[in-house]
Write a protein that binds this DNA or RNA. Structure first.
Length: 571
RNA sequence: UGGGGCGUAGCCAAGCGGUAAGGCAGCGGACUUUGGAUCCGCCAUCCGUAGGUUCGAAUCCUACCGCCCCAGCCA
């Protein structure tokens, strides 16, 4: 059912324990789960947790997992979302084989079951308005009141329900309700709505229906029709479980699925709410659903996160019932772990500073650079080297602090896989800004090591000016500056990180410019990057997936904090 | 004041009556032609609190405290 190798932590969770028990006790012959997205938005990493859980369990227990669209509300659902969801689940690495379903496939059966309930005196057509129904529902602490229409005869209900279906009544004029208990402590039992009138065109059934079933009435029965054994959903549906069971018990359904709930994923520095994500897209705060800063699967993909990293993350965080907020660093760790093993190394310079090697002859040569130190079999590539180079501006300091090991006047460093160079002069413009470095190189250090065994404390990445390919580089950071956006009463949008996307003009080596879309490379010492679909023939566009872990940044921060205290320590 | 859940380290999370796994983050150190990676070490005398049962409790009982969800003709 699936082509990837599961990271399979061997660890279990309470749901897997239940499934294992059910199998051991013979309560289920074959495990059947389902992933039931509503096609009203794009899938995000929270859905990935559910997808990995449902498809993962199916794989581990030799069962199957269905992809079922919960398309019961044509007012919000679109074909665009259906297509995107399918693509995202596939990309994540899962396959539902022939088990693709839609709740709308069951509309006729669901209608018959509603009629069954009416005949049993367990459902009735209510003429109350939405507002009146709300008033009758009571509150969390007070019981509700029965609708005056609750006592209609089965015959009258049947007639009215048929006419609702036939489209005789306007939106909102009537609903079909279950007749359960208006005094129940569980508000879901206070005569829940089963069908509402909605004259809307459905992406799949078109204009065939003018009434649509509610989630509560459609979900469990759809599970039963498909023979789902374990219907796994998030915690907020726990209150609905008694109702889920009520329908299963009161209807002649072909199987008896059971519902289990787990805590949904929350991640720091982002937000996993379709409503908010939709707003970010519509209000233009991001480039779209697939903006590399979005927590959507399409966004993560465009950002360069490998599916394997997301799957690994899902198994790392586990499954439980306690509300939790996972630090985004855990996701980033899982992604770096995969990328470190698989991403080809390349050179790229994001903030170029020119270096002229005064004793290097005209012309150029090629040096061999390993494609991946983690993987010998990745081989090497030839990178052009010449007299004029680009290095990272950040790698030079005219007055280096104590722990800065990189280039400085008079200091020698290694250019990765090439030569040792020593800075002999600093060229500045009228404003005093450094515009060029004059250096000398040691021809005996070709390849990056010296015959006399001396070892510079720093190794820099570089690019030959004549061969470097100009590129637009988009540097991405967290979408929200605050770990818990909108917390402490702050306005959510005020927490957006203004520096979440910084676009710069840089250069990349020729081998990187030809990288295929969808493949993430490492620009040595900078981080992981991937080509964006916005790339044109002339100028490639690279998205920074993640930076490498940066010990120097920590040291630098610590040192500057220390020096800030100095004046106080020594008045 | 109703109903349903949950509380184990900064974060995620095992644990299911026999004396606190693992991961992330952090902190030290080794190694290093990426200040990357890798490796080694440290990081809960204690499991929301208070009682109780027991030879023995994070695990059982009681009470209390705190947090989350539910009053859509959304899912």
């Amino acid at each position: 059912m699936d082509t990837h190798t599961t990271p399979s932590p061997g660890r279990s969770d309470f749901i897997r324990d239940i499934v294992a028990d059910d199998c051991a006790a013979g309560r289920v012959k074959s495990v059947v789960t389902r992933f039931p997205p509503e096609p009203n938005g794009y899938l995000h990493i929270g859905h990935a947790k559910s997808i990995c859980l449902n498809f993962g369990i199916a794989m581990e227990f030799d069962g199957r997992c269905h992809l079922r669209f919960d398309d019961t509300n044509p007012a919000k659902e679109e074909q665009e979302y259906i297509d995107a969801i399918e693509a995202d689940v596939r990309w994540l690495g899962f396959d539902w084989a022939e088990h693709l379903y839609y709740a709308s496939d069951y509309f006729e059966q669901l209608y018959k079951w509603a009629v069954h309930l009416i005949r049993q005196g367990k459902a009735y057509v209510d003429d109350l308005s939405a507002e009146e129904i709300r008033e009758h529902r009571g509150t969390l602490t007070e019981p509700g009141r029965e609708s005056p229409w609750r006592g209609r005869s089965a015959q009258e209900n049947l007639d009215l329900f048929a006419r609702m279906r036939a489209g005789e009544f306007p939106n909102g004029s009537r609903v079909l309700r279950a007749k359960i208990d208006m005094a129940s402590g569980n508000i879901n039992f206070r005569d829940p709505v089963l069908y509402r009138i909605l004259h809307a065109r459905h992406p799949r059934t078109g204009d065939a229906w003018s009434i649509y079933p509610s989630y509560d009435f459609a979900h469990g029965q759809s599970d039963a029709i498909e023979g789902i054994t374990h219907s796994i959903c998030t915690l907020e549906f726990a209150d609905h479980r008694p109702l889920y069971d009520w329908f299963i018990e009161n209807l002649p359904v072909p199987s008896r699925p059971r519902q289990y709930e787990f805590a949904r994923l929350n991640l720091t520095h982002t937000v996993l709410s379709k409503r908010v994500l939709l707003r970010l897209v519509h209000d233009g705060h991001v480039r779209g659903w697939d903006d590399p800063r979005m927590p959507t699967l399409s966004g993560l993909r465009r950002r360069g996160f490998p599916a394997e990293g997301i799957r690994d993350f899902a198994s790392m965080i586990g499954v439980a019932r306690a509300d939790s907020v996972v630090e985004v660093e855990m996701l980033e760790h899982a992604v770096r772990d995969v990328l470190n093993r698989t991403a080809p190394r390349r050179f790229g310079v994001v903030d170029p500073l020119k270096v002229v090697i005064e004793n290097y002859p005209e012309g150029h040569e090629h040096v061999e650079v390993p494609n991946n130190p983690e993987d010998e079999s990745a081989g090497t590539r030839a990178v052009p080297f010449s007299r004029e180079l680009w290095i990272e501006r950040e790698d030079f300091m005219e007055e280096p602090p104590k722990k800065f090991f990189r280039l400085a006047p008079g200091r020698e460093v290694r250019l990765r896989s090439a030569y040792f160079i020593t800075c002999t002069d600093v060229v500045k413009d009228a404003s005093g800004a450094v515009v060029e470095l004059r250096c000398t190189y040691d021809s005996a250090t070709r390849g990056g090591s010296a015959p006399d065994g001396r070892r510079p404390k720093a190794t820099l990445h570089w690019l030959s000016v004549a061969h470097a390919v100009p590129a637009e580089v988009r540097l991405y950071g967290h979408l929200f500056a605050n770990p818990l956006p909108g917390s402490d009463g702050r306005e959510l949008l005020d927490d957006l990180n203004p520096g979440s996307e910084v676009v710069v003009q840089g250069f990349v080596e020729p081998a990187a410019a030809g990288a295929p879309l969808g493949h993430t490379v490492q620009f040595e010492r900078l981080g992981y990057f991937c080509m964006d679909p916005d790339s044109t023939a002339g100028t490639p566009v690279f998205n920074r997936t993640l930076t490498l872990k940066d010990t120097w940044a920590k040291v630098r921060a610590k040192e500057s904090a220390k020096s800030a205290e100095e004046p106080l320590a020594h008045p």
